[in-house]
Design a protein around this nucleic acid. Structure first.
Length: 295
DNA sequence: GGTAGACCTGGACGC
DNA sequence: GCGTCCAGGTCTACC
């Protein structure tokens, strides 16, 4: 049983999937040559299913590895729509970007969507695990977290879904530190999982909130382990582009783009994209960096 | 509000 | 093979 999900044009599955490194993080996977995105998700019914997502029509075709009930199929539809931002509309941004040579190709390439995990909880944990470590470390930590605590896929137990909050909340932080190699980040993940599992923090409600972006940012910053960079990264995933996720890479590319490679600070990065107003994060994310392409 | 130091891991490097 | 250094954001204490 395949699901056909429409996307607001322009849309490209490959562009959305490769919008950042998230596809390299478990339980995502891909067959790049075949143009297939793989993922394993844990449904509300308790079942764990594998999905294959292909571009099809003006949207995507989703192939589960098992027969789904009506409710489960509807949940898969909502989840994949969220993950790929199928209903996102960048018309206003494209109108501005068309006048900027460094962004002018965005509409033709259907850029703008940023691959998300099935839940904001999962994306928040993954974002915490990007901080203060190399990308290879993030890949390793997420993989070990999924392998150690994720619910197995019945048809292939070696493949697992991202662990649910209640599962991680039940793990001693010291075990998280050792078993998943999270280091000092372990108590942050444990505290977040505990808050979500205990009901004191409804992460998924933040996906639909009408809160102004600065207020939403404050809520994200109240999560231990989420600082300026991580909050801005999560806001980007939530479709709020008012803040820039300034990390060491941002300092490097902005320095080479406008400051001759000289050391710069956060303020120079923010100043570079100030003119883009509520779209500044998107302009930064998809900027055609001269340093990046030359290195 | 700004700053210094600690946190943790793995990779690079020198010996 | 071993030891040392470094990169990578956030938190806490302190000024």
């Amino acid at each position: 049983m395949n699901l056909e999900l429409p996307a607001r044009p322009p849309f490209s599955l490959a562009t959305a999937v490769h919008s950042h490194g998230w596809v390299q993080l478990a339980p995502f996977g891909e067959d790049r040559a075949a143009g297939v995105l793989h993922c394993v998700i844990h449904l509300d019914s308790g079942r764990v299913v594998a999905l294959e997502v292909r571009e099809g029509g003006p949207g995507v075709q989703v192939s589960p590895d098992t027969t789904l009930t009506g409710d489960e199929a509807a949940e898969v539809g909502r989840t994949v729509t969220w993950m790929l931002g199928l209903d996102q509309d960048f018309t206003d941004f494209y109108a501005l970007a068309g006048d900027e040579p460094k962004l002018a190709a965005m509409e033709a390439q259907a850029q703008g969507r940023i691959l998300r995990s099935p839940t904001l909880f999962e994306d928040t944990v993954k974002t915490i695990l990007t901080t203060n470590t190399a990308w290879s470390g993030t890949i390793r930590m997420v993989r070990r977290l999924v392998d150690t605590y994720g619910a197995p896929l019945p048809t292939d137990p070696d493949r697992k879904a991202f662990p649910r909050p209640e599962r991680l909340a039940a793990v001693d932080p010291e075990e998280l530190r050792r078993a998943a190699g999270l280091g000092y980040r372990a108590p942050y993940v444990a505290e977040l999982a505990g808050a979500v599992a205990g009901g004191s923090l409804d992460m998924e409600a933040l996906r639909e909130t009408d809160l102004p972006t600065p207020e939403l940012r404050k809520q994200l910053l109240s999560i231990k382990g989420v600082g300026d960079y991580a909050a801005a990264n999560l806001l980007m995933l939530l479709g709020r582009y008012d803040f820039l996720p300034v990390d060491s890479w941002a300092l490097r590319v902005v320095s080479h783009e406008w400051h001759g490679g000289e050391p710069i600070g956060r303020s120079e990065v923010e100043e570079a994209f100030q003119a883009w107003g509520p779209w500044r994060g998107l302009a930064y994310w998809f900027w055609d960096w001269s340093y990046n392409s030359a290195s």
